[in-house]
Write a protein that binds this DNA or RNA. Structure first.
Length: 871
RNA sequence: AGGCGCGUAGCUCAGUGGAAGAGCAUCACCUUGACACGGUGAGGGUCGGCGGUUCAAUCCCGCCCGCGCCUACCA
């Protein structure tokens, strides 16, 4: 614990204080959300990172945003709870462990066998699984660690089984044999979403001829995948295509394998494309598969699951699919059947995990029927029960949801939730159950005849339960009752379909309520050039390195500063200079605090709060103090509104400018001279000190969600009345206090600021040295301004470096060389020691005059405009 | 092929139907007892192009030109 009475260190050093405070907060249990607390709940479930992962800039951004929201709401009297956890991440994790196994022991998972391999993964999880959580701690995330959940925890796994069994009972989960996406490298089925379509792949549209079986010529087809001709079972042409009309029904002879099949007519064929004749391979193309169903074609799989040609490929059997492509082409050339080819740009599906080209294969898999789940999920958004921020995503969501297709959920992996289905050796039927069944439900065969399905479930099939399975579902817990629905889901837009949409469906289906009220989707964080950060490119900025160098506070503030509710698809370009800027800001705060602390001689916080207890009424305060108090209220209001709208950049800017431009540049500067004056009476001094402390303390609370560590450190050092809480974390977030709002003072200050700025500008332009004081004549348009400027001319003198200020309603131009500028409608005449350069002066005045004339023209025109005046 | 979005100061980006803003960068001056990770001041933009609606358009509409993203089974 830091010694509160110790002075603030001369230099700001984030590293030591950040670790210290995180420990302190955890020890005091500040992060825990009590399900029984009688306060309005505010909850967020973290998008669980991959258990083997490490924190990247995207996590840092998302977690910063979530922590800002959580800390802000916690300070605003909400029962705030931010739930941490990790995802077992099926394929990704299995791949990492397989790679290690290969590297360290030269073995494959098959060498170990399922049980030993899964054990191995658990060991790996144990050793690396907490790294990413520790990194989140380093970032300052106020996560409720008591609720930390892993998607393979017993309770969570039970929820996954429950979900599967219920959907199966409802007929929403089924098993079917159909064309699915298969990764020949990962050796598993994939869902449609896990296939990435790399746009613009260069391929060849290859043409070759099928001879008619009766020797009456040939039909030329065009394909990008010649090797699949080994599985062809038809040729399709358009029914109205005169070129081929007469050939429909006629047989062709396969040139490489012993097979004949017919020319068929199907209007899926585009007459303009290729030759207008399409080879049909129902087992290896989704289009052809559908076509095959329509025409009851034979489905011949010519590829094995590992991507080699199957035994139906005759002499090509055993070849890799790309090798086979070359071989088939060579053979066709030999046979004189090649008819040319041309380059084509098309999109090819790649495995999201390993980037291997995905193979459409016929396979028996488990599926979820999505449409019945999607309909209520669409309605919930239409009804405004869930709002997307930014709302441009709403349309994207509707589009995907209304065109949703069934979800292939079985994966041929070992790491994950095993499918709760048992195959009966006796009757070959399947029994789906919550626990291993005693007997086959269909034929009564003994348990010994039942074998559990080898496959595991898609990782996302467990994550779609996240907002409620983490709170104890299917049990009816107090946690669910209090924290479900969660308030906000904050995540990257890249998993809108993978995860967010599916959570909405699952939440509505199993809980009958939406899983969250708001979906905040953040942008992709790229490097400063807009390039995606990747190890290969070597442009990765590691958040942990940033934290080490500049502190978590600087990183968080930089991220918040960059986070606009940007339009869809616009990235956040991140560079170290953003962090350095934030670090400079932290340093500025540090030093402002040092100034205030150094000037607190004789200050008594309790006495100050007694004086101010009833607001401004009857309290004699100088203008800068009234002004600063009022500004605090205004900023508190603005920041609150910005956060309420998820405008993180706005809120960060507001606090930044409040602290830097208002507290430091004016509040402290105006206080300086007076505090330095030893003749100042004790009460006046107390008020100046008190207001500075108040403003700084309020600013620290405003800033705390963004920069939790430095604000705590400084807050602890500031004098407080005896009733103050133990930590800034448990103070109230500033809300505007009307007792301290004072519009008149803000107006008056603005007048002073503009006059001071005008004089400074003249002095710089005239190159008047610092040592030389100026004399001013201020000519004003009304008595109010005269009173203000007369009353506070000492501030003008001090801050505009003048030794004489005369304020008047009108009068002759002062004698001697002068420069006149306008500050609003105040004529500011600066008396110069020496005559100005006539040419320079003329140019300046002409420029100003030109501007003024333009203004006059503009307003005259506008006021002369009848329709404008009417409006 | 459909859909979404972007084009504003040198750079990165906010923003609004009533003559444009921030941070950084640039230039000048200032080592003033909080801070040179600082202070003061200055320069810099026909808000992608062309039309339309409006009293008024950077903002609304249409087209065009440049980008980016998402969805999709074009063999």
């Amino acid at each position: 614990m830091s010694d509160e009475s110790a002075p603030l260190a001369k230099n700001y050093d984030p590293s030591a204080l950040e670790t210290r405070w995180y420990q302190e907060w955890t020890d005091r249990g500040y992060f825990h959300g009590d399900a029984a607390a009688p306060k309005a709940p505010f909850s967020i479930a973290i998008p669980p990172p991959n258990v083997t992962g490490f924190l990247h800039m995207g996590h840092a951004l998302g977690s910063t945003i979530q922590d800002i929201l959580t800390r802000w709401r916690r300070m605003s009297a909400y029962n705030a709870m931010w739930l941490p956890g990790t995802d077992h991440a099926g394929i990704a994790t299995q791949m990492v462990v397989e790679r290690n196994l290969k590297r360290e022991e030269g073995k494959t998972r098959h060498d170990l066998g399922r049980e030993a391999f899964v054990k191995k993964i658990w060991e790996w999880r144990k050793q690396s699984g907490d790294r990413i959580l520790d990194q989140l701690k380093g970032l300052g995330c106020s996560l409720d660690w008591e609720r930390n959940t892993f998607t393979l925890d017993d309770g969570y796994s039970a929820a996954v089984v429950e979900c599967f069994v219920r959907l199966h009972e409802e007929g929403l989960i089924y098993r079917d044999t159909r064309l699915i996406n298969w990764c020949v490298s990962c050796n598993t089925a994939l869902s449609d979403l896990e296939v990435e379509h790399n746009e613009g792949a260069q391929g060849e549209l290859y043409e070759f001829a099928y001879p008619y079986a009766d020797g009456s010529g040939e039909i030329v087809v065009a394909t990008t995948r010649p090797e699949t001709m080994l599985g062809d079972t038809a040729i399709a042409v358009h029914p109205d295509d005169d070129r081929y009309k007469s050939r429909v029904g006629q047989k062709v002879k396969h040139p490489l394998v012993d097979r004949e099949f017919a020319v068929i007519a199907d209007d899926m064929v585009d007459r303009e494309f290729g030759t207008g004749a399409v080879k049909i391979t129902p087992a290896h193309d989704p289009n052809d598969f559908e076509c095959g169903k329509r025409h009851k074609l034979e489905v011949i799989s010519m590829l094995n699951e590992n991507g080699t040609v199957s035994k139906v490929g005759g002499g090509f059997a055993g070849m890799d699919r790309f090798e086979a492509r070359k071989a088939v082409k060579a053979r066709l050339l030999e046979l004189g059947l090649e008819r040319g080819g041309k380059p084509i740009t098309h999109s090819v599906g790649h495995c999201q995990r390993c980037n291997t080209i995905v193979e459409p294969l016929v396979s028996t898999q488990w599926f979820v029927k999505m449409q019945p789940l999607a309909e209520p999920a669409i309605k919930a958004v239409e009804d405004g029960k869930i709002k997307f921020v930014p709302d441009t995503w709403t349309k994207t969501y509707y589009h995907w949801m209304t065109n949703i297709r069934d979800w292939c959920i079985s994966r041929q992996l070992w790491w994950g939730h095993r499918i709760p289905a048992w195959h009966c050796k006796a009757c070959e039927k399947i029994t789906v159950a919550r626990t291993a069944p005693d007997a086959c439900k269909h034929c009564g065969a003994a348990a010994s005849d039942l074998k559990q399905d080898e496959d595991v479930l898609d990782t996302w099939f467990s994550s779609w339960l996240w907002p409620f399975a983490t709170l104890g579902w299917p049990a009816e817990t107090r946690e669910l009752n209090t924290f479900y629905p969660t308030t906000v889901m904050e995540t990257g837009y890249d998993i809108l379909f993978f995860w967010v949409a599916r959570m909405i469906m699952a939440g509505l289906h199993f809980m009958g309520k939406v899983p969250f009220r708001y979906v905040y989707l953040h942008s992709l964080v790229t490097d400063e050039k807009g390039q995606k950060m990747s190890k290969v490119k070597g442009n990765v900025i590691d958040p942990m390195v940033v934290i080490e160098q500049h502190g978590a506070d600087a990183l968080r503030f930089a991220l918040a500063w960059l986070t606009t509710n940007a339009a869809q698809g616009k990235n956040i370009k991140f560079s170290m200079s953003n962090v350095e800027d934030a670090r400079r800001f932290a340093n500025k705060i540090w030093n402002a605090c040092r100034f205030v602390l150094m000037n607190l001689e004789g200050f008594d916080a309790n006495r100050y709060s007694d004086i101010m207890a009833d607001g401004l009424d009857g309290v004699e305060l100088d203008l800068p103090e009234r002004w600063l108090l009022s500004r605090v209220q205004r900023k508190a209001d603005e920041v609150h509104l910005a956060l309420d709208d998820f405008r993180f950049q706005d809120s960060a800017h507001l606090v930044y400018h409040f602290i830097w431009d208002e507290i430091c540049d004016w509040g402290i500067e105006l206080a300086k001279a007076r505090l330095a004056d030893e003749t100042l009476d004790a009460t006046s001094r107390l008020k100046i000190q008190g207001v500075l402390v108040y403003a700084l303390e309020s600013a620290m609370r405003l800033l705390h969600p963004f920069m939790p560590f430095i604000t705590e450190e400084i807050w602890q050092k500031l004098p407080k009345s005896s009733s103050a809480p133990q930590s800034i974390m448990i103070t109230m977030y500033p809300i505007p206090d009307s007792r301290f709002a004072d519009e008149a003072s803000e107006t008056s200050m603005m007048l002073l600021q503009s006059v001071i700025a005008a004089v400074r500008s003249v002095r710089t332009e005239r190159q008047i040295s610092r040592a030389q004081k100026s004399k001013l004549v201020l000519t004003v348009q009304d008595d109010y301004k005269k009173t203000i400027l007369d009353g506070y001319k000492h501030f003008v003198m001090a801050h505009a470096n003048c030794d004489d200020v005369q304020v008047r309603r009108s009068g002759e131009a002062p004698k001697g060389p002068t420069t006149v500028v306008m500050a609003g409608d105040v004529e500011v005449t600066v008396l110069l020691g020496a005559p100005a350069d006539a040419g320079v002066e003329r140019a300046r005045i002409e420029k100003e005059l030109g501007k003024a004339k333009k203004d006059v023209d503009f307003y005259t025109k506008r006021l002369g405009n009848e329709k404008f005046v009417q409006n």
